[in-house]
């Protein structure tokens, strides 16, 4: 299946990447190429094969419900691009469209 520009636009929007026209064209061709190669495994009949989520079959890794020290407010905000009143400031929140 080929990747068209609409698919590139959709994926770029989901991934929050502002790509210019050149990048979109290049990306379309590269994705088509790479996914075309990767897509070869689609032809394999793998019904009944369990997916491997982890190389090791570990289960039940958890921690006791204990409080550990938090960062100070200034440490939490140390690398913030913009902060105000102890909070991270962000531009107007809008819905994805």
């Amino acid at each position: 299946m080929g990747i068209d520009r609409a698919a590139v636009d959709h994926v770029a929007r989901l991934a929050r990447l502002a790509l210019d026209d050149d990048e979109r064209d290049r990306m379309r061709a590269e994705l088509d190429d790479i996914l075309g190669h990767a897509g070869r495994i689609q032809a394999l009949d793998l019904d009944g094969v369990e997916p491997t989520l982890h190389p090791l079959p570990l289960v039940n890794a958890s921690r006791p419900d204990e409080i550990t020290p938090s960062l100070s407010q200034s440490d939490a905000l140390r690398s913030a691009p913009e902060a105000e009143d102890g909070r991270f400031r962000v531009p107007r929140i809008i819905e994805d469209a």
Partner: peptide, 8 residues
Amino acid sequence: KAQKVRTL
């Protein structure tokens, strides 16, 4: 599918 290939 890729996670199944991993099993193989």
